[in-house]
């Protein structure tokens, strides 16, 4: 059994997206309740968030963008860059805590205190671009974690796996020229789903050509297609790249009951995907893996999906 960390902080609930928004605080409560009901809490290393040092946010984001977001919160704006991005005066601080909590978690893994971890954070990050908020995301949490691993811990090759049902445009764009960070994403085909990027022919640019890989899934294709693509695309790519650390963008929104998408992945399908990823971490990165929450909006399904996810990290 592995030592698994679980990042959860009530302050992540303070990012208020209004009454009708799918990316709501209740999501994190549902996740916590699922893990608690599964009796998993005593076996986990519980992690509370601390605020990220701004230099790590600046490692990814344009300073003008960071200030613009900070000011928007000070002015009490409720919308940022796109109407999708509903916010409140606490959004900036919550986003700093999300990134900070993740960096603390990564540190614990690097110090050998824990083997792996699940970060249940809000707001999510993988759509956030260097200078633009998008798709409910403000700071690109996983990109910040990858740069932190490289600059603070001298990790050479970081592998990012993104199985949120939407393509992580922000993460891809941030690393598309970079051969030291491999970005793999499996998601609903961009002609059917937000944000309309992540096509098969997007494979990176310049020196980073060949270090971005996208597996679009047509609607309704479910578990069989996920298995085929993960085994046919991701596994050979990571065999070659051999990441020293694996970061995972976790989205539970590909689930058949989640009305944000149509790919119809089952609960068992989710477990299969995560087991495969943990297997890869054991093989390449001595088990070092941190998973970070992105989407997932079906409040009835989040508890079981989160519980299974953590169980697989624990290796029970």
């Amino acid at each position: 059994m592995k030592k698994t960390g679980f990042l959860h902080d009530d302050r992540y609930l303070l990012h208020d997206t209004g009454p009708y928004h799918p990316e709501c605080p209740r999501r994190l409560e549902a996740i916590y309740e699922g893990i608690e009901a599964g009796g998993l809490l005593p076996g986990l290393t519980l992690i509370k968030a601390s605020r990220a040092r701004q230099r790590w946010i600046e490692a990814i984001h344009d300073i003008k963008y960071i200030m613009r977001l900070d000011e928007a919160c000070l002015y009490g704006m409720t919308e940022f860059d796109y109407p999708d991005n509903q916010m409140c005066s606490e959004t900036f601080d919550t986003a700093m805590l999300a990134a900070g909590g993740i960096l603390d978690t990564v540190k614990l893994v690097m110090e050998g205190e824990i083997d792996n971890a699940f970060c249940s954070v809000r707001p999510p990050g993988h759509h956030a671009e260097v200078d633009k908020a998008m798709g409910f995301c403000y700071f690109n949490n996983i990109a910040i974690a990858a740069r932190y691993l490289q600059e603070e811990w001298e990790i050479g090759r970081v592998g990012i796996i993104d199985f949120d049902v939407h393509h992580g445009n922000g993460t891809q764009h941030i690393f598309e020229n970079d051969p030291t960070v491999f970005y793999y994403s499996i998601h609903e085909h961009p002609s059917f789903a937000f944000p309309g990027t992540g096509r098969e022919f997007e494979t990176g640019a310049g020196q980073g050509d060949g270090f971005t890989l996208n597996s679009p899934v047509l609607p309704g294709q479910g578990d069989a297609e996920y298995k085929k693509l993960i085994e046919g695309d991701l596994v050979p790519a990571f065999d070659k790249f051999a990441p020293e650390f694996i970061l995972v963008s976790v989205g539970f929104d590909a689930h058949i009951d989640d009305d944000m998408s149509g790919v119809s992945l089952s609960t068992e399908g989710y477990s299969w995907v995560m087991e495969k990823i943990v297997e890869m971490a054991d093989k390449y990165s001595r088990g070092k893996l941190v998973s970070i929450l992105e989407g997932g909006y079906c409040l009835e399904r989040l508890p079981e999906l989160a519980r299974n996810h953590v169980e697989i990290l624990l290796g029970e």
Binding site: Y20, H21, P22, Y82, P83, D84, H127, G135, F136, H166, F194, P195, D259, M260
Partner: peptide, 8 residues
Amino acid sequence: LLTNTVAP
């Protein structure tokens, strides 16, 4: 539509 939320 320029949004992520079309279910409603």
